[in-house]
Design a protein around this nucleic acid. Structure first.
Lengths: 147, 147
DNA sequence: AGAAGTATGATAAAGTTTCTCATTGCAAAT
DNA sequence: ATTTGCAATGAGAAACTTTATCATACTTCT
């Protein structure tokens, strides 16, 4: 199956949202991106292409996409919010404190621990977020050989 | 051992920071709190007591405490940063999306998974953050019986 | 008590995100 | 194809969090 073939137009229509030029442009930008991004990324990309969508519209659109599940808010880091496409399976992140790289991973044991802990507290889990901060392989090499 | 007996004054002196009225007041507020708090909590508490420490000083002091390890930044949630005293052992959090309550827990399996995953990616972990979002026991009861 | 240098307060400023409201544009009905 | 109703947009204001600036005040060391 092609991940690019998500029919954003259909999803939005079904939820009663209108399909505007701006939204289409923003979708394209987001779907064209593989990794993680922040709002200003999108604003600048749109601008650079000579398209027009105000900052407010970008924010509004991202919130809608989040609402319909096409976008996930991933990490709040250094006062910024990072997003990723929300249609892949759940995963967690390694985040390099040196270069800011995000590495994705998945491990079922996390879910197991989650279910067990939540059972203990009668807590109904909806989602989780695990971020492991540290130094990635590349940076580790460079730091070691930098002097 | 008494957790209250952390000698903030000594820690600061040793690191070359001066001991001012404002810092002492802010320490007291923080050490007096058991749970998690945000910056405005502290600002308002200080004000309500008729003490004086500007918002800037509160921010500066929290950053110093973070630097010397007496304070941990815990969660960024809804554009706010939450803190907790940094002298307890590591733990993670269940966060209730309804009432905002934080519940602490610890499970060694998280560390095991972390080490193994990081090994796979040659990633050097420094710390992690696991937040499980959902509905706490109390809220769950209330929501169910609310109508 | 005095000197040296850090900390503070008030305010400005930077940065992110939301709100306002007049105008525009989409889409459904005519 | 036009009209019409309502949702969406843009531009700027505004809210909010956090940091920077800089003259003045306070700590600490001698």
């Amino acid at each position: 199956m092609k991940p690019q073939s998500i029919n954003v137009e259909k999803v939005l229509r079904d939820k009663g949202f209108k399909l505007t030029k701006q939204r289409v442009e923003i979708f394209k930008e987001i779907l064209g991106k593989r990794g993680h991004f922040e709002v200003e990324d999108i604003v600048h990309r749109i601008r650079r292409k000579g398209l027009k969508a105000s900052r407010a519209t970008v924010y509004r659109t991202l919130n809608i996409l989040k609402e319909v599940g096409l976008l996930n808010e991933v990490v709040k880091f250094g006062n910024k919010t990072y997003y990723e496409i929300g249609t892949k399976e759940h995963h967690d992140h390694l985040i390099c404190l040196n270069c800011g790289k995000f590495i994705e991973f998945h491990d079922n044991r996390i879910e197991e621990v989650q279910d067990q802990i939540c059972g203990q507290f009668n807590f109904k889990p909806l989602y989780h977020r695990l971020e492991i901060y540290g130094i990635c392989e590349d940076c580790n090499k460079n730091i070691k050989t930098d002097r």
